[in-house]
Design a binder for these strands. Structure first.
Lengths: 192, 192
DNA sequence: TGGCGATGTCAACAGGTGTTGGCCTACAGT
DNA sequence: ACTGTAGGCCAACACCTGTTGACATCGCCA
């Protein structure tokens, strides 16, 4: 049997339009208020198309929330710069792709979304922490990863979701200047 | 005119039961999935009672999400302990009262909830930051408050809402040991 | 050209939602 | 004891949701 190659379908444009509209709506409204009808209207097609291509609403969310953090190669940066590099990277990533906001909004109220966030933490962030932290035990690296996640997520919630005025107004460099030492310490300091 | 005194009504027990059930449901399900019917069922009364006493769903949420952080008196603690005291206080507050989780879950998807969180930050956390931080300018104190909020909120999301396994499993003292220096620095270090 | 699967639309279903008004009951004040 | 009022329940409303199946249409391949 031949491995099924891409096999471009004629409906690829529609599928993509649905996905874009879905990410928009999930990011803006969260899971429950992002209705299939609204998403279909944004994509310029009929609601039943969404069902045909993604099965049901959960399937649509699963497809729309696939996400690659594109973590930088920490082996290539000086150990004392890793905090600043990571914070900068996360802020950029958050601002260029609303899928992260969608993921956060949905993860907080929906079990499927929460599971998706857990898997991103474990599969994409934890390895970076394990690569850079001084501990030999992997369990400790997972704790360090979650500490980093807590600070990054908290700033994202404050700045992009709840829009606390001082957080939303702070220039990006200032956020980096404050958070970088925190992340740096969570990753490289000796455990307290 | 005499200032209206408590004037205890016969329905106070029902009102309280509704509020308790509402906080439960909002904390567990978020705003949209916490239905008035479910809340009324939990409280053992008819859904129309909720409307009579709180007007509509938004009014119910407004009543259920009134919240006092009960911030400790920072003037009474040594300056170098303020980080540990605050982190400990927040973790306790979060674990003893699910209204905070409700507030967070709703604030992320609902404009009214977000506004409620902003006002709590401004009215309850910001003054504490202003009292303890070294800057003379109040604008800077607001930034410091929001930095503290970001770390506390982020840990709360990771630990109590998304339940990242390493965060949920960490004993409270360990969380304090890691976060206290961060909060301490946000409040008292010279601005970067 | 004929046919056939993929693409898309329309209308409807079954269930759940916030919200409303009418009605009954029990208590408090006179 | 009588009555007005507050507390409570029931049934219904209008609307919106995810989801489904029947029908039309387009474009490719033989």
């Amino acid at each position: 049997m031949t491995a099924t190659p891409p096999a471009p379908r004629r409906s690829d444009a529609t599928r993509a339009a649905i996905l874009i509209a879905a990410r928009d709506r999930f990011a803006a409204d969260g899971y429950e208020r992002a209705t299939i009808r609204a998403i279909a209207r944004d994509a310029g097609i009929d609601p039943s198309m969404v069902m045909r291509y993604y099965g049901n609403k959960e399937g649509l969310f699963a497809a729309a929330s696939e996400f690659d953090l594109r973590m930088p190669d920490v082996a290539a940066v000086a150990t004392e710069d890793v905090g600043a590099v990571l914070v900068t990277h996360f802020l950029e990533r958050w601002e260029e792709d609303e899928a992260l906001t969608a993921l956060l909004r949905v993860g907080v109220t929906n079990p499927v979304g929460a599971e998706r966030m857990r898997s991103i933490l474990q599969r994409q962030l934890a390895p970076v922490a394990a690569a850079v932290c001084p501990d030999p035990e992997p369990g400790r690296a997972a704790e360090r990863a979650v500490l980093v996640a807590s600070q990054i997520l908290g700033m994202a919630v404050s700045r992009y979701v709840l829009r606390f005025p001082p957080a939303a107004a702070m220039p990006r460099e200032e956020v980096v200047a404050w958070l970088a030492p925190t992340v740096q310490r969570y990753l490289t300091a000796v455990a307290p």
